[in-house]
């Protein structure tokens, strides 16, 4: 996916140029493969195999050792070792196509649905190998919830959206218990006040920010141990973003949260640790303050000062 995303972006960048040009006079020209990308490849060869900073943490909950991910021939993630602690928020940052989303999707085996994807290395959740043969990915995903880039409520009522998870996992014995779970989850997602009088209306009718909070409510309704967030605010306006960030802050009391973000401000605001990915490698991991004030690696510095992006 990493490589594919990058290709897509290059195409999208080239398209408007071709369209806006006076097509009758000037033939659409293809922009050659970006010079910056090639330079970046050279830079990566400069950096060593070793990740800079502190990949270990006290009280680790998710442990990934030497993880490699391939999409067909494309080596999307290379030798990533990282520990994620219980009830900590870790932000994954890096330029487009650097593999941070791929890494995130390894943690709940969402890559399984991609036919050509292959994962090697060891990923353990609370000491249990999640790629082990005895582990059911379905059960895993109930423990590791995920919030996606674009709000994706089901075309069902608000109530049914939140009740979906508890229903399929049989978490509620009767209707009253289910009501309780739905209300608690919506409340924790900070959405209850806004929707309590219209629980039967379709979830797709909410605003973007509300939809995203509905998706978060839906995720916490199954009572996971970890929440993965793949750029959860990239489709939202600043006010909705601020609300989600507050929410992440509150949720971090109870859950380990791994958040992929393109916004360094957001990473600085919500996370305790930051991991910087570059072209499939984990370049640097450290406390958020250290990364943003005193990055140890040249690439990290370039990225957070806006020289790569």
């Amino acid at each position: 996916m990493a490589g594919m995303t990058e290709m897509k972006i290059t195409e999208e960048e080239a398209m408007p140029e071709a369209r806006s040009a006076d097509s009758a006079v000037e033939p659409a020209r293809h922009r050659p493969m970006g010079a910056t990308a090639r330079k970046a490849v050279e830079r990566v060869t400069e950096l060593g195999e070793q990740t800079v900073g502190e990949v270990r943490c006290e009280n680790p909950f998710i442990v990934t050792e030497n993880v490699d991910v391939y999409y067909g021939d494309n080596h999307a993630i290379q030798n990533v070792t990282l520990e994620i602690g219980k009830s900590e928020v870790i932000a994954l940052i890096g330029p487009s196509g650097c593999g941070k989303s791929t890494y995130l999707r390894c943690l709940n085996r969402m890559n399984d649905s991609i036919e050509s994807a292959r994962v090697t290395g060891k990923i353990a959740l609370d000491g249990q190998d999640i790629y082990g043969s005895d582990l059911d990915p379905v059960a895993l995903r109930a423990r590791v919830g995920m919030v996606f880039q674009k709000p994706n409520p089901f075309p069902k009522s608000i109530y049914d959206n939140v009740a979906y998870g508890p229903r399929i996992h049989g978490l509620a014995a009767d209707r009253a218990e289910l009501d309780d779970i739905v209300h608690t989850s919506l409340d924790r997602a900070g959405l209850l006040k806004e929707v309590k009088d219209r629980m039967d209306e379709p979830g797709t009718g909410l605003s973007g920010g509300q939809q995203q909070r509905l998706c978060i409510a839906r995720t916490i309704a199954v009572n996971p141990e970890v929440i993965l967030m793949d750029e959860p605010c990239s489709a939202l306006d600043p006010i909705a973003t601020a609300r989600i960030e507050d929410l992440i802050d509150e949720l971090s009391q109870d859950y380990a949260i791994v958040i992929v973000t393109h916004s360094m401000q957001q990473a600085a605001r919500v996370s305790k640790r930051v991991a910087y990915f570059h072209l499939g490698r984990l370049v640097e991991v450290d406390e958020t303050d250290k990364i943003f004030t005193n990055p140890r690696h040249k690439l990290t510095e370039d990225y957070i000062t806006g020289r790569i992006g």
């Binding site: 969402m110 649905s113 059960a139 995903r141 919830g145 996606f148 089901f154 069902k156 979906y164 839906r218």
Partner: peptide, 27 residues
């Protein structure tokens, strides 16, 4: 039906058939 629906359902721990019957087919 957008892949996002499928991912959302799978991400909540639904099996493929639950995803199909409860989310994708209704949509």
């Amino acid at each position: 039906v957008p892949t996002a629906m499928r991912d959302g359902a799978l991400g909540l721990g639904s099996t493929r058939s639950e995803t199909m019957i409860k989310v994708i087919l209704p949509a």
